[in-house]
Computed example of a mutant assay.
Amino acid sequence: MRSTPQLVTLLTICCSSALSALVPHVTNQEENVVLEDDDSILSPLKPFHVIHECINTTSVDGVFYIKSPGREETCGLYLFSAVNTVIEIELEYVNVPCHTGGLIALVDGWEMNGQLFPGPADHPLPVRERYLEHCGTTTTLQPVRSAQNAALLQYRLPVAGSAISLRVRHLPNPAPCSQLVEGSEIFTLRSVGRRNNCTLLSLNPVEFRVLSYRVGVPPPGIMPEALTGPLLKCDQRAWQDLVEVGEAAGLDATLSLVTTRLCGRSLTPGPIQNTCSGMFVTRLISSGFFNNVVNVKARLLTTEEMITRCFSQYDIPQDLGDALEDYGW
C-alpha cells in the first residue's frame, strides 16, 4: 500500500447542503443480501451489505461489497461507531485495475471538503500517514485500525465490474480521545498525563451543557479548594490546558468559532446553550502535565426546536405555522 493522499482532492461534496444530507439521518443505505454471482469472492456464501449509492454513512459492522457500474466520480463510505470503540477495516477482495485510474484509500478519520476529523492538530499521526492507498487485484490485506470511532473508505472505480469487499469490525477502545457523536447523552473527554488534544464533534444541531470539568489544575486534595475553582484567561496561561466550546462549519475543530473557554475546576453545570449555524464542538487541549477531564451533555434538537430557537439566525419567522403557510406547505 502507498500512503499519499491523492484522493483527498478528488472527493468533493457540496458544502452545507451535502453535509446536512450526508450525516444528520445517519442511516444505512445498504441492504443485507446474499450475493451468488462470484464464487471467488463469496466462498463460503455469507450475508453482505451491498453498497449502491456513491456516498453512504453507516454505523453497522460486517462485510461490505461494492461493485462499480462504471462511474468516474470519487465516492465515499463513511463509517462510525460507538464513542468507546475504534473501527478496524480489512480489505478481503480488491479488483481495482491501476491502469484504468482506479484507486481506493482507507482514511483514519473522516474527510470532507478538504477538512479532516480529527483535525491535523488533534490526531496522533501526521496527515500523510492517515491515508493508505491501493489499486490492483488482491485478496486479503493487513487490517488497519482507526484511532477513533470514525473511518472512511474513498474509492474511484471508473471501469464497470471493478469491485471491493471489506470487513468492518467495531473494537473496544478503553481510552477514547476524539469522538464523533450522534444521539443524546453525556459525553466525556479525558486526557490523563498525555500531551494531546481530544475533540467531541456532533454534526447535528444540539442543545448542550458543560456539566463539570477539571482542566489545568492538580487533582483534588493537592491544592486548597479555593485555588482550584474556575479560572480566567485560560488561553493566556503558561500552560494552555483548556476546554474550547463552539461551532464549526467543517470537520476540522481547530477552525471552529469558539464561544467559551474553560479551565480550572467546576462541578457546577453551566448554562444550557444551542448550536444553530454549525456543528457542535468541544475540544480539550492538554499539555500532558495534568489529568484533564470534561463532561458534556448534548441532546439533538428536533426540527421544531431548530426553527423556534434558531429562527433569527436562519431568518425564519418564529411562528412555524406562518412560515409553512408562507412557503405554501
Score class of each variant (00 low, 15 high):
residue 71 R to K: 06
residue 141 L to S: 10
residue 107 V to E: 05
residue 282 T to R: 12
residue 26 V to N: 14
residue 52 H to L: 07
residue 241 D to C: 00
residue 292 N to S: 01
residue 108 D to W: 07
residue 252 D to Q: 00
residue 108 D to E: 10
residue 125 L to A: 02
residue 189 L to N: 06
residue 200 L to N: 01
residue 26 V to F: 14
residue 41 I to E: 13
residue 8 V to D: 12
residue 183 G to S: 04
residue 66 I to R: 11
residue 222 I to A: 13
residue 51 I to G: 00
residue 211 L to H: 13
residue 42 L to R: 12
residue 242 L to E: 06
residue 214 R to F: 03
residue 130 R to L: 05
residue 15 C to P: 15
residue 196 N to T: 06
residue 248 A to S: 15
residue 15 C to S: 15
residue 317 P to D: 04
residue 231 L to K: 14
residue 223 M to Y: 12
residue 63 V to Q: 09
residue 50 V to E: 10
residue 300 L to P: 09
residue 291 N to P: 02
residue 128 R to F: 10
residue 211 L to R: 15
residue 318 Q to F: 13
residue 251 L to C: 05
residue 97 P to S: 10
residue 69 P to F: 05
residue 151 A to F: 06
residue 1 M to K: 13
residue 283 R to P: 02
residue 213 Y to D: 06
residue 116 L to H: 13
residue 309 R to C: 09
residue 216 G to M: 02
residue 284 L to N: 06
residue 16 S to G: 04
residue 145 R to Y: 02
residue 285 I to R: 15
residue 146 S to K: 07
residue 169 R to H: 05
residue 146 S to F: 08
residue 293 V to S: 12
residue 314 Y to H: 15
residue 184 S to T: 12
residue 84 N to C: 01
residue 281 V to E: 10
residue 122 D to F: 00
residue 22 L to C: 03
residue 41 I to H: 08
residue 2 R to V: 11
residue 54 C to M: 03
residue 158 P to I: 10
residue 25 H to F: 14
residue 6 Q to G: 07
residue 119 G to V: 02
residue 118 P to T: 00
residue 321 G to E: 15
residue 283 R to F: 07
residue 29 Q to S: 12
residue 94 V to D: 08
residue 212 S to P: 08
residue 269 P to N: 12
